[in-house]
Structure formats: structure tokens, C-alpha cells
């Protein structure tokens, strides 16, 4: 049994990552009264949200409403932003995410993140995958090779690149690069994937491929996704939360299962947003 705030390190034996079925829709990540400030500017005010395990939660809303700030709190990437202060509470399983004692590196291992712009490192495809694994203590070459193949297969990239693993990752197309980034995150056996508009920087065809890939990750992975594209949220998400800039800071004004969100919006602004009148 794990103590709170101790996160199991990645072990080579973890390599079995075939679906851990979690049919339960128990809340998995809780945020309560989450506030984010950048210097004197409040970006997020009093956001409470529960995210269910194995589901896709879409965060929608106009630009500047705090969606990305919310996302980066979950894996404490806000630590990297100068003058950024986070208060409130985030509970991930048994872990108090915002506690200073939390092992951030292990937290980020368990909560992977995909950015809007594909951002492979300027190395070969293989090294992009090997080097995070090594940093997390997996040194055995056979295990590493198995993981590389497994994660590249998972994102549908193995057939495309198996014969050029040692060529530069930057030579791949945008869609391939984004899938490589997803593979890189998956190779660390995360439980949660945070995605910040993962398709918006891609051409329509690659975007479709990546979208299908993300949909296929539902179940074994809990996905929290920021998107500007309401149609995408409707197609993919199980749950939708609408962020809105109110009183100078970002807040959640409605959070519902997808069907309810689109068919029976509770808030006036939600309806206007869905209808394209506002936002």
C-alpha cells in the first residue's frame, strides 16, 4: 500500500501496459477551489472539477479563459513559470499534487502531457524515446527496445518508421511528430494524459489520424483535453467543462456529461457558446 505522496517509481516490470480496465467512473482527479496567479494577474479563480478515470474530459471555452493554466496545474508544470502562484487543492488518487513534498518527477511520469505544437527533441526517433526511459531508471536494452516497439505500434507509427529509427525525429511530418510525442509519453506508462489542443497545429488529414488515436486511448488512460473545436469535443469527449472569463478570471461555468452539455445546457452562456453566438 502506498503512503500518500509516495509515488511508485517506474519499474521495468511495469512494461505490461495492456488495458487496465477501470470501468468504474469514480472521480480520479479532484481539483477544489483552484486559483492561479501570474504575478498580480489572476488567471484562474476557484475552479473545482472532478475528472473520471478512463474517460476523456474536454475543456472548452474562449481563448484566455484559463483552460491551459488549469491543465498545467495538474502536472505542476506551473512550477516552471516565473511568478506563477497556485493555491487550492488537487487530489490525484491519493496524492496531494500541490504539496511541496510531492515527487514532481514521478508525478509527471504518471501524468503525461501532449502539447499543441509537436515538440520532439532534436535527436533521432530512437533517442527521443530512449532518453526519458533511461532517466526513469530503465537501463536494460531489451526492455527499452520492447517498449519502443510497443509504444510506436500503439500510435500506429511503427510500420512507418521501424526502418529509420536512427534518423532525425525532426524529419517526420507534423502528424507523425505529434504521434511520436504521444508514443514518448505512453512509453513511460502514464495513467493520465493531458492534451493541449493536440490537433490544432496539424493539417486536416493528420489531425483526423491523431484524433482517432486519442479516441482509441480511452479506457486504459484518463485523458484531459483542451480544445477549441466544439465538434471535436462532441465527437470524442465523455465529459465537457466550459471555461469562461468572469470577473477578470477564468472559471468553470458548466461541467456536464457530453450529451447533457450539448443537449440540455444549464447556463445561458453555454447555450450561446454552443450556438456560436458568444465566445
Amino acid at each position: 500500500m502506498n503512503q500518500p505522496n509516495t509515488i511508485p517509481a517506474l519499474k521495468p516490470s511495469d512494461s505490461k501496459r495492456t488495458p487496465r480496465p477501470h470501468p468504474s467512473s469514480e472521480p480520479f482527479i479532484f481539483t477544489e477551489n483552484l486559483n492561479v496567479r501570474y504575478g498580480s494577474q489572476q488567471a484562474l479563480g476557484g475552479v473545482s472539477l472532478s475528472i473520471k478515470q478512463g474517460k476523456i474530459t474536454a475543456l472548452v471555452g474562449p481563448s484566455g479563459s484559463g483552460k491551459t493554466s488549469f491543465l498545467t496545474c495538474l502536472n505542476r508544470l506551473t512550477d516552471l513559470v516565473p511568478h506563477c502562484q497556485v493555491s487550492g487543492s488537487i487530489q490525484f488518487g491519493k496524492i496531494d499534487v500541490l504539496s511541496p513534498d510531492t515527487n514532481v518527477l514521478q508525478l509527471r511520469r504518471r501524468i503525461g502531457m501532449i502539447f499543441q505544437k509537436p515538440n520532439p527533441f532534436p535527436f533521432s526517433i530512437r533517442k527521443n524515446l530512449v532518453f526519458p526511459l533511461r532517466e526513469h531508471g530503465i537501463k536494460d536494452t531489451a526492455t527499452i527496445d520492447a517498449r519502443i516497439q510497443e509504444s510506436l505500434t500503439r500510435v500506429g507509427l511503427w510500420k512507418e518508421v521501424y526502418d529509420r529509427l536512427d534518423s532525425s525525429a525532426l524529419a517526420l511530418s507534423g502528424g507523425q511528430q505529434q504521434r511520436l510525442c504521444i508514443a514518448r509519453a505512453l512509453s513511460l506508462s502514464p495513467e493520465v494524459l493531458l492534451m493541449d489542443e493536440p490537433c490544432s497545429a496539424l493539417d486536416p488529414i493528420s489531425s483526423g489520424v491523431v484524433e482517432d488515436l486519442i479516441a482509441s486511448l480511452r479506457g486504459p488512460y484518463t485523458i484531459v483535453m483542451v480544445t477549441h473545436n466544439l465538434a471535436q469535443a462532441r465527437r470524442m469527449a465523455d465529459h465537457v467543462a466550459l471555461f469562461w472569463l468572469q470577473h477578470g478570471n477564468g472559471q468553470i461555468i458548466e461541467s456536464q456529461p457530453t450529451r447533457e452539455f450539448f443537449h440540455h445546457p444549464q447556463h445561458k452562456l453555454t447555450k450561446e457558446y454552443i450556438d456560436g453566438v458568444r465566445g
Binding site: 509527471r108 502531457m113 502539447f115 526519458p132 532517466e135 509519453a185
Partner: peptide, 19 residues
Amino acid sequence: DYRLSAAALGLSQASTLIS
């Protein structure tokens, strides 16, 4: 991006610098 994505992968500051 390099620093961000390295941090998001759970790499320590020292490893990010060195590797």
C-alpha cells in the same frame, strides 16, 4: 518547448541540461 516537454516527461533539471 524543449524545457517544457522535458519537464512534462518528468525529467529532472540536471538531466534536461545534460542530455
